[in-house]
Amino acid sequence: MAGLEDLYREIILDHYRNPRNRGELDCPPARRAEGFNPLCGDEIVIYLDLDDDGRVADLKISGQGCSISQSSASMMSQAVKGCTVEEVRALNTAFKALMTIHESRLDGNGNEIGGETGGDGSGTDTPVPDPRVSLGDLAALQGVVKFPVRIKCATLAWNTLTQAL
């Protein structure tokens, strides 16, 4: 069985205890998108403000959820501020790949196997990340793939942000 230390890394707990960019923005001008995790009832609302150049001028997050969904949202909010829409999409692809590649190598007990296919449960093909994209703190969420049911917690914020774009 994969250990809890793989899942609840210190940086994740830090973002959970002190979530960055919590709050709301006026809509308009900001865009608003809601995401739900039907499994656990987690809800997330993302407020996204793009400037005239198409960069993320501001982003706020509200809603409630578990440590994984909340910390993932918090880290995402830091990562995408100042990014262009294209850069956000590239980060999203890189993050989904992080959540996917490893899952494909895990069996139901969190042990690595030589699998070919995988997915984050969204039914999409495995995304191909741009190797130049750095995930920074978000890479700490890599351990989530050893707990497949929690992958949807980690990807909730990203899927919601994609809706808002």
Partner: peptide, 28 residues
Amino acid sequence: IHPHDISQVLDQAGVCVRAGHHCAKPLM
């Protein structure tokens, strides 16, 4: 503590409990 996190930690002790809205969202 979020129920998902409770359930995950309990699992390490072999304790299986359900976490979520139990298909009763209006009641939640």
